[in-house]
């Protein structure tokens, strides 16, 4: 089996909130393989965005990665000095965000931002970069690219701004692309366009994609493998088909049970859905225990160990670990 491109092990992230500290990520482990689309799925508060920001080392000041390692290209990103991290950001790992307009420089024309990335990462001269930037904008599906290149971010729609960001990312030729809810806030028909574009770009460049989303529909259509996060912990990880066919963590089952499918009329059954309750970050055991319908005594006290259900299917749940080989 090939070496993973990104390997996250035992990652822990603490955030200081007033005078107490909370582990918003706890014992996070997963790999992203070369040339694959890996999904990180979870609800708000699951830590999926924090995981990405930790990889990029773009954490808020109150946050501290206190344990674990993030191996990428033979280096542990967590122990890299900031100067070394600058060599990685953009060039090797690029990220696109939820609010694309906020990620662009508001004072710089869209085309210049693409051109600057080309000069910085591909060493083009200014005139070369300018020409290449128009081609790139066209490549990401921007019609009338010359005119759009002269636009400032506020003159672009959300979908258009996301295309510009994808063009910038292409200019950087990263090995790993992280997309954090890249279509949130966009209209449905524009979302479809952007996902088609992201898939196309990923296939063309051979980069790996770590896609962060709350939408299992997106996971199903875009990803090959997926990790399910809840309250800062990975609950289950599997190939996408496997996860949908054999969800093995009570949280995954309930996440799937909460889905309202647009292509099927069905009786709604809230007993199979996730119960209303707040996230318990302080549990000494499984953080899903307070919402789990099948909770055991041990779930409150001990963290579940990894239970492998296949080569590429792992679940962290005491209910499963009993029958463990």
């Amino acid at each position: 089996m090939a070496e993973p491109l990104l390997r996250i092990r035992s990652l822990r992230l603490d955030i200081e909130d007033h005078d107490r500290s909370r582990a918003v990520l706890l014992d996070v482990n997963f790999d992203v393989m070369p040339n694959e689309v890996m999904g990180l799925v979870g609800e708000s508060g699951s830590g999926k965005t924090m995981t990405a920001l930790t990889v990029m080392r773009l954490l808020p000041p109150a946050a501290r990665a206190s344990a674990g390692q993030i191996d990428f290209g033979g280096q542990n990103l967590l122990s890299l000095p900031e100067s070394g991290m600058r060599q990685v950001r953009g060039s090797k790992i690029a990220m696109i965000f939820q609010n694309p307009r906020a990620a662009l420089n508001p004072l710089m024309r869209a085309g210049d931002q693409v051109a600057r990335a080309l000069m910085l990462h591909q060493g083009l001269t200014r005139p070369e970069a300018r020409r290449a930037s128009i081609d790139l904008l066209r490549h990401v599906g921007i019609s009338d690219a010359e005119a759009r290149a002269r636009a400032y971010p506020h003159q672009l729609s959300g979908g258009m701004a996301q295309r510009v960001l994808i063009a910038i990312m292409l200019a950087c030729r990263p090995a790993l692309l992280i997309a954090d809810e890249p279509t949130t806030g966009l209209d449905v028909t524009i979302q479809a366009q952007i996902f088609e574009l992201i898939k196309k770009v990923q296939a063309e460049t051979g980069a790996s994609l770590l896609l962060i989303t709350h939408d299992l529909g997106v996971v199903s259509e875009v990803c090959q493998r997926v990790a399910v996060m809840y309250a800062g912990q990975i609950m289950e990880q599997a190939g996408v088909r496997d996860l949908f066919q054999r969800p093995s963590h009570p949280y995954t089952e309930r996440l799937l049970g909460s889905i309202l499918r647009v292509d099927q009329a069905a009786e709604l059954d809230t007993t199979r859905a996730i119960a209303f309750a707040s996230i318990d970050y302080d549990s000494a055991g499984c953080r899903f225990a307070n919402r789990c319908p099948d909770v055991l005594d041990v779930c409150w006290a001990e963290r579940p160990a990894a239970c492998w259900l296949g080569d590429d299917h792992v679940v962290f749940c005491h209910l499963r670990s009993e029958g463990q080989p």
């Binding site: 199903s220 259509e221 996408v240 949908f244 799937l256 499918r261």
Partner: peptide, 13 residues
């Protein structure tokens, strides 16, 4: 177009 744009959580589809 609207209906076909919605991702459906079923990888076998």
């Amino acid at each position: 177009a609207l209906l076909s744009a919605i991702p459906i959580p079923d990888p076998t589809l």
